[in-house]
Design a protein around this nucleic acid. Structure first.
Lengths: 119, 119
DNA sequence: AGCATCTGCTTGGTATACTTAGCACGCATC
DNA sequence: GATGCGTGCTAAGTATACCAAGCAGATGCT
């Protein structure tokens, strides 16, 4: 394990850096996130890649947005929605519109997808 | 397990609905996502909650944004970054979608506005 | 009818995510 | 010195995510 770099090292280093910036010990973060402190230690050292739920919980405790954390973990491409790609844009906007009920969202999405598939 | 509802049923139903809308079989989706077809079947029936990587892959294959998929899975709060910016978002996205014809855009906008005015 | 192909699903197995119990060390106090 | 507390980490154990092998049914073709 001398110098061996796992795929999750960058993420772990990011989490440790943010934790230290927030002046929290592993045990304190563990209490806040309800994730065990040994596991957090292992995550920080790149031994495991945590689930999105754990990432979300850590992000909340460290007052980072979930989006930032997912970007760091490679779960979101922060350019994806803006790189001239239409795919997902309309869908995302519909989902994000709080004035629409779930049924209305479903209806709009179904119609939209129908249009996309047979132009 | 008769009628027993797992926490992931909504997500599974969402994925199945999108897959069927896209006219893909489980095996086709499995090939596209590199996820096994039995597992996808189990995910759709709410037996397991898939990781964010699997969700991202499914989203890509079904041409849904990762954000949309994560929202559906409860991994992102869709209001988190967009509260107060709902107005105009859907309309903008529809206008900007190059895959829609003018008629289709008009239709979608008409329906959308109808929903907004009388909820 | 038989055969091939496609479909969704069951079952047992493997790997990883995550926990619990506990160790070693550092520091402060008496 | 001894003791207590906080710190990060090890190692064994548990649960879940996900896979491979294969079954049963439906459909189409000869």
């Amino acid at each position: 394990m001398t110098g061996k770099k796992s795929p999750w090292n960058d993420l772990g280093e990011f989490i440790r850096a943010q934790r230290e910036l927030a002046n929290l010990s592993l045990r304190q973060l563990a209490e806040m996130t309800k994730v065990s402190n040994p596991y957090l230690s292992q995550v920080e050292r790149g031994l495991y890649k945590p689930s999105a739920e754990v990432l979300k919980s850590i992000a909340g405790a460290l007052q980072i947005s979930a989006e930032t954390m997912y970007n760091q973990a490679g779960l979101l491409d922060d350019d994806a929605g803006t790189k001239g790609h239409d795919a997902g844009r309309v869908e995302q906007a519909i989902h994000g519109d709080s004035r629409l009920s779930k049924d209305q969202k479903d209806t709009l999405l179904r119609i939209y997808r129908g249009f996309i598939e047979r132009p």
